[in-house]
């Protein structure tokens, strides 16, 4: 049994390109997902009629079905839907990369929304009252008082969720996209060096995600020193792990 890891080394540029896409996808989905998720969480927290119910249904749906299925849905259906909206009625080919960005953002937003929502609920009611009593508008209240506290408190969980997101990006394999795993798979299959490439991929993911988890732990420890709100502590403990 001899394994040719030199092949892996020479393929490094191509692998790095794939890794770059994985990281890009993670960042876009995290930022987009957090923005959309925070927005949805606030709508639900405020109890806006109709909208809050819609958010609830959306979040429940996204959290109940596999990501692979959601990828298929978007990959096949979004071009069709957009086609209905345009004058010509033809489906617009979006390209798998763009579809992946949209899909992951929308999918992850459901998970971030739940994290933020728990954070909003865990903030002491007095903070909301203090802000209202001062006459702050609703948007000022959320923007200046509530959301900064929620983000600080839920930072460790958000980091954990993002690490899971990074792992999930590997699933773009089913759309034949060239992320890190996809790049490795392409070469491995072409050159019949499955063992070398897949084990390398595993080790690289292990290193990156371990470092990410370390970061999350540091965050958590720093939180423990600064936090002054007991209920927020309980919310964090409830969320020992981000999502299934």
């Amino acid at each position: 049994m001899s394994f040719d890891f030199a092949a892996v080394v020479s393929a490094t540029p191509y692998l790095l390109q794939g890794l770059l896409f994985s990281v890009e996808l993670t960042l876009v989905a995290m930022i987009g997902g957090m923005l959309l998720g925070t927005f949805m969480a606030i709508i639900r927290h405020m109890g806006v009629p109709v909208a809050a119910e819609a958010v609830r249904a959306y979040v429940t749906l996204m959290r109940s079905i596999p990501l692979i299925l959601v990828l298929f849905w978007f990959f096949f259906l979004v071009p069709l839907l957009l086609g209905h909206l345009t004058p010509t009625g033809h489906s617009i080919p979006l390209g798998p990369r763009f579809t992946a960005f949209i899909t992951f953002t929308l999918f992850e937003s459901a998970y971030y929304a739940e994290i933020v929502r728990a954070g909003l609920k865990a903030i002491d009611k007095g903070q909301y009252e203090g802000a209202k009593a001062l006459g702050l508008s609703t948007s000022s209240m959320y923007w200046s008082v509530v959301v900064p506290q929620v983000l600080r408190a839920t930072a460790p969980i958000i980091v954990s969720q993002t690490i899971i997101l990074f792992q999930d990006t590997a699933l773009v394999y089913v759309l034949s996209l060239t992320d890190f795993l996809g790049a490795a798979a392409k070469i491995a299959q072409r050159d019949s060096k499955l063992v070398e490439f897949y084990s390398t991929v595993a080790v690289v993911y292990l290193l990156i995600c371990s470092m990410g988890s370390e970061l999350s732990e540091r965050f958590r420890k720093k939180q423990g020193q600064r936090s002054s709100n007991g209920r927020l502590e309980r919310a964090k403990r409830m969320f020992g792990l981000a999502r299934p």
Binding site: G126, Q127, L134, L136, S137, S140, Q149
Partner: peptide, 29 residues
Amino acid sequence: REVGMVFQSFNLFPHLSVIENCMLAPVKV
């Protein structure tokens, strides 16, 4: 705006410094 309130549990904003706590509402409201 015209009615101020002081709470039993203070309800200061923990992520802002003392002076920032005091400046927030006059600026925003």
